[in-house]
């Protein structure tokens, strides 16, 4: 326990100033996105750098929602992201538990291989992935994206889940087993409720990763029916012009599911759920 320190008002002001600068820096792009989204088209170039536009409009949102296929892309992205997050988290939780609790032959090898998969730049494997997906006839399907995203995210998600399981004392499961649980019951009734923050964090991470992925989606999807949202955004760029207003409006809308998702899992991310379990 460190003693309570009295800081000078100057130090406190400085601290908050630094925080404010950082927050401003981090949030400025988001502000700019929202600002352009509500700026009428004709003002975008004329008062390009003004912090606050002289008039506002929701026209961009209206045309994005009604005049483009945006809702379609949106739905595709939701399907891909939620499915990927769910599948990946299930597999990663199972694998993470095994890595955390059991010693088995080949454990180190599997960990090493998983680490190696994380070392390659994605660009290197784009061509082979395309070949494989084309060979099994999954081009232009959301399934292909789900499979590829799941495969790419499992190693990291597994390490993440393993660290969460490592944080739960083994004693708790053993106490459960002494109390009459099978290992599986102990997992379900004791470990799983305590891993909810971990599951939430993993779900959120994978969801965001899949939601904003462009490279694979761009390569594996050509038809308008199966385009995901990031690819769809590119349709606002035509050969001769970029429709900034609509693009930014679409971007703002794209933030909505991510925000909702994090608000939903936020309460599971609260740390300290295991405090009080064991001492020392």
């Amino acid at each position: 326990m460190s003693a309570h320190r009295h800081s000078s008002p100057l130090a406190i002001t400085g601290k908050y100033l630094a925080l404010a600068l950082y927050v401003g820096f981090a949030l400025f792009p988001l502000y700019w996105l929202a600002k352009i989204a509500v700026t009428p088209d004709k003002l975008i170039y004329t008062e390009g750098t003004a912090l606050i536009p002289s008039s506002f409009t929701l026209e961009n949102f209206r045309s994005v929602l009604l005049a483009t296929d945006f809702l379609f892309y949106f739905r595709n992205s939701l399907v891909v992201s939620i499915t990927t997050a769910a599948i990946t988290t299930c597999i990663a939780a199972a694998a993470g538990y095994a890595f955390s609790r059991f010693d088995f032959r080949g454990k180190r090898l599997v960990v090493a291989i998983m680490l190696i998969t994380q070392m390659f730049p994605l660009l290197m494997i784009i061509a082979p992935i395309y070949k494989i997906v084309a060979a099994v006839g999954l081009l232009n399907s959301l399934t292909s994206l789900i499979i590829v995203y799941t495969a790419f995210n499992i190693p990291f998600a597994t390490f993440l889940m393993q660290s969460f399981f490592d944080g739960i004392p083994k004693d708790l499961e053993e106490a459960g087993m002494m109390d009459g649980c099978t290992r599986f019951q102990a997992l379900r009734k004791i470990v799983l409720p305590l891993t909810l923050p971990g599951l939430g964090a993993t779900l959120g991470f994978i969801f965001t990763a899949a939601w904003s992925e462009l490279l694979f989606a761009l390569m594996l999807i050509n038809s308008n029916d199966t385009m995901t949202f990031p690819v769809g955004l590119l349709t606002f760029v035509s050969k001769f012009s970029v429709d900034w207003g609509q693009m930014m409006a679409a971007g703002v809308l794209a933030l909505v599911p991510s925000c909702l998702f994090f608000i939903f899992i936020q309460r599971y991310l609260v740390q300290g759920l295991t405090s009080g379990a064991v001492k020392g």
Binding site: A175, M178, T182
Partner: peptide, 29 residues
Amino acid sequence: QPRDRDMAMVFQSYALYPHMDVARNMGFS
């Protein structure tokens, strides 16, 4: 298996289930 040995154990770390209240901890078995 431990669950069939009919023995109760008190752990050094206590190993209380953090998400259950005292009554449920005690009645868990």
